[in-house]
């Protein structure tokens, strides 16, 4: 079977690298934790990997705003490589802080010039919150969410997760292109306010993908629910694992 190589990107303040790596390795990938300095110094080459995963954490302490400084490193130090990585149709996933990075680097929702069109800002509650949320699988374009049930259950843990867009046209484009992957909801799938929508996101948006469905960012943590024992009531299988499996299987089938 083809070896699927995953680069879990880390830097100062990355926290969820090890469990993200564990989730990928559980579904058969070969995972490496790579410090961004190694990519900048060209000691490591991003093209040696099929999947780039940017995990959760507080890169650079969330200073300025969450994910911003790492996003700028991608934009100003690695932009050509990232562009080429995307052109080569490889996969990218950003979880929590990684999603913030992808949004602020303009990789998501995605346009040619990497101009930021959306943002993830301070929760309406003005504080960090760790809670489990129901997610409605809204659109099916994303390759990372194949085979998931209509409603899944994952934890969020963040202070800056409120999804906002520059203007209405961005939202319309997201809808038109089926880029809205997950929306916060209740157990029946209804889109409701706090605490179901834990941060006040526009249209309850919890995760989006790019136009191709290969680049995916989400605030909830699938790596924290890959095993039924992580579920708060130990009742459901680790549904988050499917997301990692989808990435790995996509590479196996298409690369």
């Amino acid at each position: 079977m083809r070896k699927v190589r995953v680069c879990v990107l880390r830097t100062a303040g990355t926290n969820c690298d090890k469990e993200t790596a564990f989730a990928f390795s559980k579904v058969g990938a070969t995972v490496e934790l790579v410090h961004i300095n190694r990519l900048i110094e060209k000691k490591k080459d991003i093209f040696n990997y099929d999947i780039l995963a940017i995990p959760g954490g507080f890169t650079y302490g969330d200073d300025v705003s969450a994910g911003k400084i790492l996003a700028n490193e991608l934009r100003f130090r690695l932009i050509d490589k990232i562009k080429k990585f995307i052109q080569k149709q490889r996969l990218i996933i950003g979880i929590c802080n990684g999603f913030q990075v992808l949004i602020k680097a303009g990789v998501l929702p995605g346009n040619r010039n990497f101009i930021q069109e959306a943002s993830l800002v301070t929760n309406d509650s003005a504080k960090f919150e760790d809670r489990w949320v129901h997610l409605l699988l809204t659109d099916k374009r994303c390759i990372w969410t194949k085979g998931l049930p209509k409603i899944i259950y994952l934890p969020v843990a963040h202070a800056e997760g409120k999804f906002v867009v520059k203007d209405r046209s961005i939202l319309l484009r997201l809808k038109k292109n089926s880029q809205i992957v997950f929306q916060y909801c209740n157990e029946k799938g209804e889109l409701l306010g706090y605490p179901y929508n834990p941060n006040g996101s526009v249209e309850n948006i919890a995760g989006i993908c790019d136009e191709t469905g290969r680049i995916f960012g989400l605030m909830p943590h699938p790596e924290r629910h890959i095993d039924f024992l992580q579920h708060p009531n130990w009742q459901k299988n680790g549904i988050g694992l499917q997301i990692f499996r989808n990435g790995v299987e996509y590479v196996r089938k298409n690369f």
């Binding site: 926290n15 969820c16 090890k18 469990e19 564990f22 989730a23 959760g56 504080k127 960090f128 919150e129 760790d130 809670r131 489990w132 934890p155 843990a157 943590h221 790596e223 924290r224 890959i226 024992l229 992580q230 708060p232 009531n233």
Partner: peptide
């Protein structure tokens, strides 16, 4: 207080500080 702490990072949480039908 409890929700302001990340009690699940590192992925090893088995029994959480808040439990129940509605956690």
């Amino acid at each position: 207080v409890i929700r302001q702490y990340d009690h699940e990072v590192q992925g090893g949480s088995i029994l959480k500080p808040l439990v129940g039908v509605y956690n």
